[in-house]
Simulated scan of single mutants.
Amino acid sequence: MPGKDIRDRARGALMGALIGDALGLGPHWYYDLDALRRDYGDWISGYTDPQPGRYHDGCKAGQLSQAGFILTLTMRSLVARGGYDRQDFCRRLDEDLFPLLDGTPVSGPGHYTSQSIREAWRRRVEQHLSFEETGGPADTTEAIERALAIAVRYAKSPAAIAAHVVDNTVITQSDPLVVSMSTAYCVVLGMLVVGHKLDAALSDTLMHLVHTGELPFHAVTQDNLQPPRPGDPDPPRAGRFASPDALLSPSFMARAAADPDIRIEPAWKVSLVYGMPCAIYHQLPAAYYLAARFADDFEAAVLHAVNGGGQNQARTILTGALVGAQTGLSGIPQRFVDGLEEKKELLELAGALAATLE
């Protein structure tokens, strides 16, 4: 069943991401699938404790990792300021996150700090650089994991999503390809929140926004990717991204999910097809595929995401947001909400942010 309305879908996207974060807390970063099955059984079906000596050791089932902590920080900023306020977001990093870190991997909320956050901490706290200089080269999805809240807030304006997500992403990650792919994911998420489907037609809709100058991607093709005609001028660049390819990927993944001649069985093996590592170019194809294949089945989507091993926490966050935006909060099984340690506060925060859409 599709989400009831835009606010239901907005809450679904936010809670879906938070649920995905908590699901990945226990079995995070197992690249040996035999070891994953040994420690968690043949099928992970809910929240679990991290194993001693592994990532997030000391945390408990249903808690959020540092990714979830930063996502909620972003949500609080958006609610408090009524929208994206870079200065307020950076102040919260300075006051609410960075004092909890020490620059090492095993530190801070969730007992693990990702590379891009460690690099930003070092530049800001140790080197005393401005937030214009804190972005590093990490090719991971940490920016999406927080900026997805921005996508929800500005779901009705793809141009605003792109502008604010770019601005937020470069605080921690400066690689143009990472910024491009992060922005594209957030624009896709916004489209789902307003009611579009993750299907073969979605990329055509996104390309129309490129041609009208609403999205900052460069493209020389005409509609339906037809070649330019002799004499057509090189179009002015609408923004910083060299190509629209990051906007085309979602529909290709959706086509693969719908094609009866292409089957990934069981679906958790999407991690083997697209890759188990952390890099954004492994994570996004898997998330798009699962979100298209299980568009109306939140439970199947997130459980196949987490059971694939590797960087399954990011995969489940990204998948949970995309599917939650399609099913709405009303389509998420209640047990996933009930199992979150801070469910009351998280529901209230998601509701407050969703309320700003209309």
Rank of each mutant, 00 (worst) to 15 (best):
C59E: 15
K60S: 13
Q66D: 11
A67Y: 11
A67C: 12
G68V: 08
G68M: 08
I70R: 10
I70K: 01
L71D: 04
L73G: 07
R76A: 15
L78F: 12
L78T: 12
V79I: 15
A80H: 09
R81W: 06
R81H: 13
R81K: 15
G82P: 09
Y84H: 14
D85M: 12
R92M: 12
R92C: 10
L93R: 06
D94C: 06
E95R: 14
P99W: 04
L100I: 01
L100H: 05
L100C: 03
L100E: 14
L101S: 04
G103W: 11
T104P: 01
T104H: 10
P105S: 07
V106K: 08
G110P: 07
G110I: 03
H111N: 15
H111F: 14
H111V: 04
S114P: 05
Q115N: 05
S116V: 03
S116E: 06
I117P: 00
R118W: 00
A120M: 05
W121M: 09
R123D: 09
R124A: 01
V125Y: 01
E126G: 01
E126K: 10
Q127A: 12
Q127V: 03
H128T: 07
H128P: 01
L129N: 02
E132C: 08
E133G: 02
T134M: 02
P137W: 03
A138Y: 00
T141D: 06
E142R: 12
A143H: 04
A149Q: 06
I150S: 13
A151N: 05
A151Q: 09
V152K: 14
V152S: 13
V152Y: 14
A155T: 13
K156C: 12
S157P: 00
S157K: 07
P158R: 13
A163W: 05
H164G: 05
H164E: 12
V165Y: 11
V165L: 12
N168W: 02
Q173L: 04
Q173K: 00
V179G: 00
M181G: 03
M181V: 01
S182D: 11
V188T: 06
V188W: 00
V188P: 02
